[in-house]
Design a protein around this nucleic acid. Sequence first.
DNA 1: CCTTTGACTGCTG
DNA 2: GCAGCAGCCAAAG
Length: 110
Amino acid sequence: MTATFYEQVYDIVRMIPKGRVSSYGAIAKSLGAGGSARMVGYAMNNAGIAMPRVPAHRVVNSKGLLTGKYHFSPPELMVQLLENEGLVILDDQIKDFKTVFWDPMIELNK
DNA sequence: CCTTTGACTGCTG
DNA sequence: GCAGCAGCCAAAG
């Protein structure tokens, strides 16, 4: 695979179904990157210019908090997009996070 | 080649 | 339950 770590992250994120979310750590782990969750977030920084568009709004931290919302323009966009997909956001936190959580390790049968 | 940078995570007090 | 600290590791300068 000539794909960089970023591209691998993008692939996983694009696979996240509508109305579901995943976490940085889970994605990193599914890539075999171990605890390099920060790298996933760092990759998301590039997601803004990645093609095709990467649904970065479906990626949150392990607690279901929209930690990266301030990287959107405007920050409220992330919440809007998630709510548009049927999710409920309460004070920057995803309601029923465990229920809508999408685990790449399981869904991709890795 | 060495340093800095993170949209994170888990443990500890 | 919350704040602080350290570990994590790839990419960019």
